[in-house]
Nucleic acid binder design. Structure first.
Lengths: 164, 164
DNA sequence: GGGTAATCGTTGGACATCCCCACGAATCTC
DNA sequence: GAGATTCGTGGGGATGTCCAACGATTACCC
C-alpha cells in the first residue's frame, strides 16, 4: 500500500478512495441539481424547503441549528422561497422575536415533485449497479457516515451541509 | 421506492445515495486536506503538483485539459508552488507561447511525503470497514465513476475536479 | 507568402459558499 | 426593573468555480 517505486503521483492520488467518492459525489450533486432546476430550486433551497416542511412552523434559528447552515445565507434562501410563494414567514405570537416559517400548499406540491425528481436522478447515478450492489453501496456508505468522529462525546449532528 | 405517505421531505433527501456519498466525500476531503496542510499544500495545489510531476515538462494548457481546472486558477496555483520552490516555469524553446513546467527535487520530496499522508488519511476514512468491505467499496465506486456519460461518443475525461 | 484563425499565459470580474462581527428588537434571568 | 441572551438581519472578507477578454505567438489555408 506504500507508493509504488515507479512513482506515479497523480495516478496515486486518483486511486485513493477519497478521490473516488469525491468524483461520484460531484456527479450525484450535479445530477440532482439539474433534476430540480426545472422547479426553480437549487440544492440549498431544496434542503431548506424540505426542512421547513418537516419541522412544521419553525423559527429560523432552529433551521440554522438543524441544517448547520449560515444564518445569513438562510435569510437569502427564505427570501427567494417566500418570493416564489413556496413558504411564508409569519410573526410568532408567543415570541415576537421569532418568525414562524411554514410551507405553503404550492411549496408542498413542489416538494413532492422534487422528491420524485431526486429519486430519478439517483436512479441514474446508480444505473451501473444492480439491486444487490446498490444495497451494498448504501450499507457501506452508511457505515462510513455514521461514524464521523471517533470521540462520540459531544459530536455535532452537522446535518446537511451539502444538501443532497 | 416512491415517497412514503407520511411524507418526510428532509428525511427523504438524506436517505438518497447522492446525499450519503456527498457527506462521506466531504469528510474524506477534509481529512486529506488537513493531512497535507502541514506540507503547505491545499488539495488543488497537491493535484497540480502531482500532475506536473507525472507529465514531465508540461505546458499549462495541457494541465488545464488534463485536470479540467480553470486556466486562471492554475496560474495562481503555479505561482504559489513556484514561490515555494516546488516547481519551475521555463519558456519552451520550441513554442515561445508555452511554459515548460517542471517539478524540482524539493517538489518531488514533498510529493512523496504527501502520498504517504494521503494514504494515512484514507486509512482513517475507511477505518470502520474491514479489508473485504474496503475492497467492495472501491469496486462499487469505480464502477460508478468510470461510466460518467452513457453517450460515450465524445466523452470528456474530466479528470480531477475535486482533486483528492 | 500573407492574411486569418487558433492557441498560449494572464488578468478581471461574476457568483456562490462559508465564516465572524454587529445591530435593534424582544425575551429571559435574577 | 437591570443586565444578559436570543431573534432576524445586514456588512465585510476569504475561498472556490466559472466565463470573457486581452497581447503575444503560432498554425492554417488559399
Amino acid at each position: 500500500m506504500t507508493p509504488p517505486e515507479p512513482f506515479r503521483a497523480l495516478e496515486h492520488i486518483q486511486s485513493l478512495p477519497s478521490w473516488l467518492v469525491g468524483r461520484v459525489a460531484a456527479r450525484g450533486r450535479s445530477l440532482v441539481a439539474e433534476a430540480i432546476a426545472g422547479e426553480g430550486l437549487k440544492l440549498p433551497h431544496h434542503a431548506v424547503l424540505a426542512a421547513v416542511f418537516e419541522y412544521g412552523p419553525v423559527a429560523q434559528a432552529d433551521l440554522v441549528r438543524r441544517l448547520s447552515i449560515d444564518a445569513k445565507d438562510l435569510v437569502g434562501f427564505l427570501n427567494h422561497l417566500e418570493g416564489a410563494g413556496l413558504l411564508v414567514r409569519e410573526p410568532d405570537p408567543r415570541d415576537r422575536r421569532k418568525n414562524a416559517v411554514t410551507v405553503t400548499t404550492k411549496g408542498t406540491r413542489t416538494l413532492r415533485r422534487c422528491a420524485e425528481l431526486g429519486e430519478r436522478a439517483n436512479e441514474e447515478l446508480l444505473s451501473p449497479l444492480d439491486a444487490a450492489e446498490r444495497q451494498a453501496l448504501i450499507a457501506l456508505l452508511t457505515k462510513l457516515h455514521q461514524v464521523p468522529s471517533p470521540d462520540a462525546d459531544h459530536a455535532q449532528p452537522d446535518a446537511a451541509r451539502q444538501e443532497d
